[in-house]
């Protein structure tokens, strides 16, 4: 992975602090998440303490710090989904999979991400698992979906 990140940093060879966010976005795109190793390399490259990089990265919802699970669940928390009770859907997922938003389960099978509006408001509440959408969710339905992926 070190290599992939270093290649990626080549195009930022003269940059400083202001390119931090684009660099982090590129790494996430390439590797799927911001590992400790990646943050250390970027810190050295830009001369910024890792605490500052981590602080900035955690400010934005878009960055994750663990690799995605085999089943990557994205839950929309836009206004429409919020109004239609997505919070309780998130709670059900967190409880069933024993992970919190932003985390990946220990066995690497599941990960959960809460995202801002994914533009399917008429279908609220909506989630996607590895890019497949599930809409107009109810408590019953989400439990059923979870059983299905857990049974695989």
């Amino acid at each position: 992975m070190e290599n992939r990140i270093e290649i990626l940093l080549e195009k930022y060879s003269h940059s400083r602090r202001d390119s931090l966010i684009p660099i982090l976005q590129d790494i996430q795109e390439e590797v799927g998440y911001l590992s400790e190793e990646a943050i250390v390399i970027v810190g050295k490259h830009l001369g910024i303490p890792t605490s500052k990089i981590f602080g900035l990265a955690t400010f934005y919802n878009q960055f994750r710090f663990e690799p995605k699970g085999i089943h990557h669940i994205q839950v929309c928390h836009g206004t429409a989904c919020h109004m239609l009770g997505v919070v309780s859907i998130i709670e059900i997922i967190e409880k069933r999979l024993k992970i919190k938003a932003g985390q990946t389960s220990r066995n690497g099978k599941y990960s959960l991400e809460v995202v801002t509006c994914i533009g399917a408001c008429s279908q609220s509440p909506v989630i996607s698992i590895n890019g497949v959408y599930y809409s107009k969710l109810t408590a019953e339905r989400i439990k059923q979906i979870l059983e299905e992926i857990m049974g695989e």
């Binding site: 400790e36 943050i39 303490p49 890792t50 605490s51 500052k52 990089i53 981590f54 602080g55 955690t58 400010f59 934005y60 710090f65």
Partner: peptide
């Protein structure tokens, strides 16, 4: 140290 997270979830913490 730095500020981690945002809004009501903000805390002071270390790298990672």
């Amino acid at each position: 140290l730095d500020f981690l997270n945002r809004g009501s979830k903000t805390i002071i913490g270390t790298a990672m």
